[in-house]
Design a protein around this nucleic acid. Structure first.
Lengths: 341, 341
DNA sequence: TGTTAGCACTCAACTCTTAAGAGTGCTAAC
DNA sequence: GTTAGCACTCTTAAGAGTTGAGTGCTAACA
């Protein structure tokens, strides 16, 4: 048996109706509210076929049909094709210019959640591929040195260090020059033991400070590998009865709160090198345990060269995929453009 | 009518039982499981009195009794007195030393939630009372200046500024000296317009940069007034049926997610100058809308002089107050000692 | 006078039954 | 190939009856 045009139209009608209502869809509903002008009996025949083909399910013998994961998959794939062809204006300004990155991302998550009425996540971009751009040691008071480290993309890290004895201005200057000459333009991976040894030697009696700074550099950059993730719209889970019963809600919310678990999603997304567009996970396709009853739609943004992050929407399988995809693309574009003007 | 010793013992028994079970407590239960050796009938008489006094409630005519807010209040007050008298060892090491403040606080929230099985919040300390300790402008590249601002307590802020033309080393040095001479040791409130004007004049053609730095200083410090709050243990709300029905859970979780709403709590807490110990809000006493069905217990910690923050537990009114208070005191002490060794 | 036993009463919660209604599959006719 | 019609299935909601925990009250007892 083949999936002809009419069958697909009916499938689409079933899915669309189900997206709205969340209730199993009967043949009569389809017969009335499509312009196919077919009787419910005919629809029933087609539905039997669609069920046999695996696109729809019957929760129990005398109920209407609901889409299967496979059904959603077909629907989403077709939808994505169409969207791809559509001309996209998407020019609205949604994000106010914010200088603080974390504020911006939090706000982005909130906006996504509000616009879509699903739960939203935004991962902060990962920097570890980036080059060191600037290092500076300053004396804050007699016992404290401040190391400021700037990496490409103008991300700034600080570390405060305690020193045993006060350093003179010359020493500080010398150390600064030493550090900048050796380390500027390098990535973390490129800083090797030989180089560190050479620097320590040049630093002479202050080799411990050089060691301290390099540790600080490593630490500062490493600290960001345990990935910052912002979420919003937890309460939206409650809007969809199929997610809101105790067990499920509790599990979902736990997963959503434990940002660590969401990082799977980000990893999965960023790993896919040629993933330029939108990724849709339906039900069991998800890489995140505890969200098997959901659909997840993600997109990857790129702030500056190499600074990639992930944005995503989590909702019921019967989510409004079109709206979600549109919103994600919109936000993705805005983030992409942010530092590229 | 008076609340004599026996009545209080019975009230305490009712509350303790209710804390465990969450079910209305009947006279027979109390009669059996206390060492008062009174029959259920006598207990019933006493319960009628306690109800008249407002300490307990009957959800419906033929149900047992549950504590009223007033009942909880009495119980908690007495408990706090006793605890105060107890010798407290509290020496366990729960927090690993972490150099990143936000990590530490996140971990603290998690620990609280895990230990108590309620929801937990930790607010980052507020700095705005603090004095500026160190300001430094550095050239990152020809177009970008980095301003590093350190305030007392060694909290560091950065701002990147774009300049129209490259500044010479001397100019930079002069600006640095100017800024430090004028601003060091001052709080934000002390920096007034006259001073800014004077500095601008001294800066000559670079007055715009001084203005920029001062804006940055203000901005950097102000940015933290919208208070960072870490939460953990949302899922614990689901453990208590009286909080877990749709409406309530949805409202609670929203409130808990919108950290902004929790800031009421922090404000309320920090405002109370002589509040050295533990604060308990029962039901309607809470300053946070949307948590009227909960009890909230908070404590204030102080990292360094003037850097105060709030930690808190949010749970059902029938929470294990003793455990909660103990945990909060423990964490409070640890945080208090953190930078005071 | 305080305590207790006993009894009638109340009310939520559960179970069982019944009825309604939505939807199906199948058959026969167009 | 399409449709009308009918018997059948199964969920859901509503109602009736039952159970049991718990109360208030009264009368008797120490």
């Amino acid at each position: 048996m083949q999936l002809d045009e009419r069958k697909y139209t009916i499938l689409q009608a079933i899915i669309r109706t189900y997206l709205e209502t969340g209730e199993p869809v009967g043949s009569r509903t389809i017969s009335k509210y499509t312009d196919l002008n077919l009787s419910s009996a005919t629809i029933r025949n087609e539905m039997a076929d669609l069920e046999e083909l695996g696109y729809i399910l019957q929760p129990h013998t005398s109920a209407g049909r609901i889409p299967s994961d496979q059904g959603y998959r077909l629907y989403v794939d077709k939808m994505m094709e169409e969207k791809e062809r559509e001309v996209e204006e998407m020019k609205e300004v949604l994000l106010e210019k914010e200088d603080k990155m974390d504020h911006l991302l939090k706000q982005a998550a909130k906006m996504l959640a509000n616009n879509t009425e699903y739960a939203a996540m935004v991962s902060a971009p990962q920097y570890h591929r980036n080059k060191l751009k600037f290092i500076q040691l300053s004396r804050v008071d007699s016992r404290h040195l401040l190391a400021v480290i700037v990496v490409e993309g103008n991300v700034i890290k600080n570390t405060m260090m305690t020193v045993a004895e006060e350093l003179s201005d010359e020493t500080l200057l010398k150390l600064n020059i030493l550090l900048n000459t050796h380390l500027n333009g390098l990535t973390m991976e490129q800083i090797n033991l030989g180089m560190i040894a050479a620097m320590k030697q040049q630093a002479g009696i202050h080799s411990d400070i050089v060691a301290g700074v390099i540790d600080a550099v490593a630490e500062a950059i490493k600290a960001d590998e345990d990935l910052e993730i912002y979420t919003s719209g937890t309460k939206n889970f409650f809007k969809y009865p199929e997610l809101a019963d105790h067990e499920r809600a509790s599990e979902l919310i736990t997963t959503f709160e434990e940002k660590q678990l969401l990082s799977e999603l980000v990893q999965d997304n960023l790993a896919d090198e040629n993933n330029t567009g939108i990724q849709v996970y339906i039900g069991n396709e998800t890489p995140v345990q505890g969200m098997r009853d959901c659909s997840i739609v993600t997109a990857t943004y790129e702030l500056d060269e190499g600074m990639k992050g992930t944005i995503g929407i989590i909702g019921p399988k019967r989510m409004d995929y079109e709206k979600v995809v549109k919103n994600l693309k919109l936000l993705k574009n805005q983030l992409d453009d942010l530092y590229r003007k």
